[in-house]
């Protein structure tokens, strides 16, 4: 069953020097599976994720031939309908919990506001649900974390809070935008396995956005490789080494291997015709 179907998505920013296209005709569809989107900085992967939630602020524009989530046309949805979709049906985990949590609101307030305001759940019941959500992301002393403020949490802790917050309304689709990039390597694995377990248990769809091709391939069923706002290749995660596109190969080759040769790592070769395509814009 298709959860999300996107055809020819374009995100354009009107700047003083003319329009700049951050996403230039991206198409993909997704069931209750894990889809990875990989690319370097500026490849449009974050914008693709945010466009689905209509979170691009003016002067950005979102256009698509078709963008349907679970039978609902996202291009025609009113702002109110989008708000009803956000959080409840589609959640998003952002890169750095240091910035994505409100610094002057306690964790408890941020976790329960959706329940209290939208679902009109009483204070005690909302508190209990939030504590349960914190336990689900393996936080051992949830009551303490509930009373804490974001600056009192470590990065890994903050990201777990963020994941808990997004999973409370039990969405059908979770967009994880570089959820571990801001974390220490040791904490990364832990947060990833928590995310992995929860997504698997609840049968959610997942869009995992990252610049780390190997990480994504371990974690997802399918991988889209993006470059300059376009999808240049789609590969099955298990088949990564069979990737044919020179950009994908470049991404794979520029990672060091333990025990491998100590020669300088190859940079990305952008001399091929694929890298010259500017689609009419700069």
């Amino acid at each position: 069953m298709t959860l999300l179907d996107v055809q020819n998505l374009r995100v354009t920013f009107d700047t003083e020097t003319g329009p700049v296209q951050a996403v230039r005709g991206v198409s993909f569809s997704l069931g209750r599976e894990r889809l990875g989107i990989v690319g370097e900085s500026g490849s449009g992967k974050t914008m693709t994720g945010r466009a689905v939630l209509r979170l691009i602020r003016p002067p950005g524009r979102i256009e698509a031939d078709r963008m349907v989530f679970d039978g609902q046309d996202l291009m025609k949805a009113s702002d109110r309908e989008m708000r009803a979709l956000r959080g409840q049906r589609i959640g998003m985990v952002m890169q750095d919990p240091k910035y994505s949590l409100n610094p002057v609101m306690s964790v408890g307030q941020q976790l329960t506001e959706g329940l209290r305001l939208r679902d009109r759940i009483g204070r005690a019941a909302a508190h209990a649900k939030a504590v349960a959500a914190l336990e689900a992301v393996q936080i051992r002393d949830p009551e303490r974390v509930m009373a804490a403020y974001p600056h009192e949490l470590s990065g890994g802790m903050g990201q777990r809070v963020m994941i808990a917050m997004m999973l409370i309304p039990e969405p059908d689709l979770l967009i994880a935008d570089e959820p571990t990039s801001a974390l220490d390597v040791t904490v990364q694995a832990e947060v990833l396995s928590i995310l992995d377990g929860l997504v698997r248990d609840r049968g959610m769809g997942l869009i995992f956005i990252s610049h780390d091709l190997r990480l994504v391939s371990r974690f997802c069923d399918r991988v889209l490789v993006m470059y300059k706002g376009r999808i240049v290749e789609e590969v099955q995660a298990g088949n990564l080494l069979a990737a044919r596109h020179p950009y994908t190969q470049g991404l794979l080759n520029c990672l060091p291997r333990i025990g491998g040769p100590r020669a300088p790592l190859p940079g990305l070769d952008r001399s091929g015709a694929w890298a010259q395509d500017n689609g009419g814009t700069r």
Binding site: L85, R86, G87, Y99, S100, N102, G114, M162
Partner: peptide, 29 residues
Amino acid sequence: GQEYITTARVKGMPEWRVIWVHAMRNVMV
């Protein structure tokens, strides 16, 4: 322009709450 504002919007908070609660409490400082 801060990221926690995006978080509040992702949570589906209405715009008045995003501005007058989430942002305003930080503006107050």
